[in-house]
């Protein structure tokens, strides 16, 4: 994989950004974020017609093998689409689709510094008194995202879906992912898929821009437990807003190893906050369908992690770790939802 250096970045931006001069790059380093994309942080100073600027930026690069079938343009477009619609996200600055300059497509975004994103920090005793606030912030932001009218968004980068088709589209998508990244027969996941096909949910109440990975670990929060920005939009798509709620409550994300979903709040609390913020109903049967569906999605992603080790010349540690850590827990979660645990 091509090494990203400060001089490479400086020369690229000098050629790419009209009117920028005296560009200086410093403190470039990779962050321990995410299993799907490489994330780097750096400082930049430059001069343009408005004077001298200094700021921090985030660079994300598509790797040769990932656990998520997405690309830079998709996530970049998702951030751009939702920016300014009441959901806090970093400002996007630049997209480079061509893999040649950096060995993979990249995007640049503003770096919101001084905040936290760790899901594990929330399990520390010092944070327990702020979990109520964080629960409110997390699930109300998710609820507000569900309420955003998709007609007002530049949503052309997402595959078409309707309230009637989204459930089976998602099931087809993740079953295909399982088939493509086969890591051995999965009796529990396949039983779940058959059940989901035999018991389709009612049509979605509305079509929403679904984040696709909205959980603890994928948003920034401050010392007071306020949500600063929602990150990691590479799986954003049009769909049933219940999908995000269901994903956030998947058992494998119970980082406190107890009944708190996302390691933050019990299931009924999460549902209440989301319902109040979204103004939408939570049909128990529909939510159950989506919770099981999200287990299938999870297993497809963890299997893709395992599969990456079979094909990538330089596999990432996080892919092996995630597959070992999560696959059996995901099976247990499916057994629970199917009443078989």
């Amino acid at each position: 994989m091509k090494t990203i250096t400060e001089s490479l970045l400086r020369d690229y931006l000098a050629a790419r950004m009209d009117g920028w001069s005296e560009i200086a790059i410093s403190n470039l380093h990779r962050l321990p974020l995410g299993a799907s994309r490489e994330t780097f942080r750096f400082d930049i100073a430059y001069t343009d017609g408005d004077g001298r600027h200094e700021e921090g930026l985030i660079l994300r690069r598509d790797p040769p093998a990932s656990n998520v079938d997405s690309d830079r343009r998709h996530e970049f477009s998702a951030y751009k689409a939702i920016y300014g619609h009441g959901i806090p996200v970093p400002r996007m600055i630049l997209l480079e689709d061509d893999p040649e300059p950096f060995g993979g497509a990249i995007s640049l975004a503003e770096d919101l510094r001084g905040f936290h994103n760790s899901e594990y920090q929330l399990q520390e005793p010092a944070w327990q008194d702020r979990l109520g606030r964080i629960a409110d912030e997390m699930w109300s932001t998710m609820g507000r995202l569900a309420a955003v009218p998709v007609e007002k968004l530049d949503a052309g980068f997402m595959e078409p879906a309707t309230c009637e088709t989204t459930a089976m589209l998602e099931l087809d998508r993740w079953e295909k992912t399982l088939d493509t990244h086969d890591t051995g027969p999965e009796p529990i996941t396949r039983a779940a898929i058959r059940w989901l096909r035999r018991n389709p949910p009612p049509p979605a109440q509305k079509l929403a821009m679904v984040h696709g990975d909205f959980r603890a670990g994928n948003f920034l929060y401050d010392d007071d437990g306020r949500l600063i920005a929602v990150l990691d939009w590479e799986m954003a798509h049009l769909g049933d807003p219940l999908e995000d709620l269901a994903w956030s409550m998947v058992r494998v994300f119970s980082f406190g190893k107890d009944e708190r979903r996302s390691g933050i709040a019990p299931r009924e609390v999460a549902i209440r906050i989301w319902r109040e913020a979204s103004g939408l109903d939570v049909d128990p049967q529909a939510l159950h369908w989506w919770e099981l569906m999200m287990c299938v999605k999870g297993q497809a992603i963890w299997n893709t992690c395992a599969h990456a080790w079979q094909i990538a010349p330089q596999p990432a540690v996080i892919h092996a770790y995630a597959a070992w850590w999560l696959r059996n827990a995901q099976d247990r979660a499916m057994l629970e939802l199917m009443g078989q645990l």
């Binding site: 190893k257 247990r332 078989q340």
Partner: peptide
């Protein structure tokens, strides 16, 4: 289902969230 349940319980790892 009972066999699958036994399999999953036997494969549990201590660090798993569930």
């Amino acid at each position: 289902w009972a066999a699958l349940r036994r399999s999953v319980e036997a494969r549990r790892i201590a660090s798993a969230n569930f």
